[in-house]
């Protein structure tokens, strides 16, 4: 238990540091790099929740594919657009801090009351056989819907670039 507590303390500290950095960097590429570190750390965090498969998927899909796509798009823009992104405080109202205050109040109230015994984890082992059983027996409709939805981006891309070609040639 003590190892888990120390590891989670270090991870929480890293999350705080990189969140602050991501908030205050002006250059979009640096900001992006901080968010990348956050995503990889979240994959590490999943290991502490007995979800090794989700951790690997998080790193492969998010850090490995989706964010590389974003970085690729960033390089298509000229450097001047990415350089000085100022924080715009003009239109900010004080009431927008209400949710943050509520969140901090809730966390503090949990700390004051103490952690009840029932919040200790029940040991569930989440392995791949269990996932696939659940996915293909109980959630088959969701998977088919997902495949249907995921075919939309492909079709959209195809239609978009066909139209682009047509307008470019004429």
């Amino acid at each position: 238990m003590i190892e888990r507590a120390i590891a989670l303390l270090i991870l929480t500290g890293l999350f705080f540091i990189f969140t602050l950095l991501a908030f205050f960097f002006r250059h979009l590429v640096y900001q992006f790099l901080c968010i990348l570190v956050l995503m990889v750390l979240q994959g590490v965090l999943y290991l502490y929740l007995n979800a090794e498969f989700l951790g690997a998927i998080q790193v492969i899909v998010y850090a490995g594919a989706v964010l590389i796509m974003f970085l690729f798009t960033l390089f298509l823009f000229p450097e001047e657009e990415l350089k000085h992104l100022k924080i715009d405080l003009k239109n900010l109202k004080y009431s927008s801090f209400l949710p943050v205050a509520l969140f901090i109040f809730l966390l503090l109230s949990v700390l004051v009351k103490g952690i009840p015994e029932s919040y200790q984890p029940r040991n569930i082992y989440f392995d791949l056989k269990e996932i696939s059983n659940l996915l293909f027996n109980e959630y088959w409709l969701a998977i088919f819907l997902l495949a249907f939805i995921l075919s939309f981006p492909m079709v959209a891309l195809y239609v978009f670039f066909k139209r682009e070609e047509k307008s470019g040639s004429s």
Binding site: V29, L33, L36, V40, G43, E52, F53, A56, I57, V59, I60, A63, G64, A65, I68, L71, F72, F75
Partner: peptide, 24 residues
Amino acid sequence: VNLGVLVILAFAGLGTYGIILAGY
């Protein structure tokens, strides 16, 4: 590790960042 293949895929994907950032 019981997810050996996935771990290798994940780190191979992260290694790309070195090349892209070197280029940028």
